[in-house]
Design a protein around this nucleic acid. Sequence first.
DNA 1: ATGTGACTTGTAGTCCGTT
DNA 2: AAACGGACTACAAGTCACA
Lengths: 71, 71
Amino acid sequence: MDVRKTFGHNVRRLREKTGMAQEKFGLEHNIDRTYLSGIERGVRNPTIIVVKKIADALEVPVAVLFEDVPD
Amino acid sequence: MDVRKTFGHNVRRLREKTGMAQEKFGLEHNIDRTYLSGIERGVRNPTIIVVKKIADALEVPVAVLFEDVPD
DNA sequence: ATGTGACTTGTAGTCCGTT
DNA sequence: AAACGGACTACAAGTCACA
């Protein structure tokens, strides 16, 4: 499994759990909506600083975003 | 704590546990020696693809490299 | 409400070396 | 054995118009 997909799926799953749309989530945490979209789809290859920023926004430890979660 | 420092410390700790020098470890896993040095010192900001590559090289789950380990 | 292509600017990632 | 420097190319960060 591509780490970008694993990461992206986890971000999407946890963001949806907050009930916020990409746009609202992005606005609240200063992350561009389209950039977030790319991350959730696994087409971006973010650096660990971005990873940390997103983990903080989702209020989860960074490690959680790399867990393999089966469908 | 800066995520780069956390990450770097974990990489260093686990690499040293293998008994390999940065150079040998880098050669065996196709990671540039100077780049690895920068990562361990927390001055680099690697992408998640590199993170995964290093985790694989260290034979640990990615999540482990982001754990807060007190000195 | 999200996906996508295209774009500029900055830096990730590599390679040569010296301390 | 590892830190650090300089120079380089590839690609990430960040944004936009449009579907």
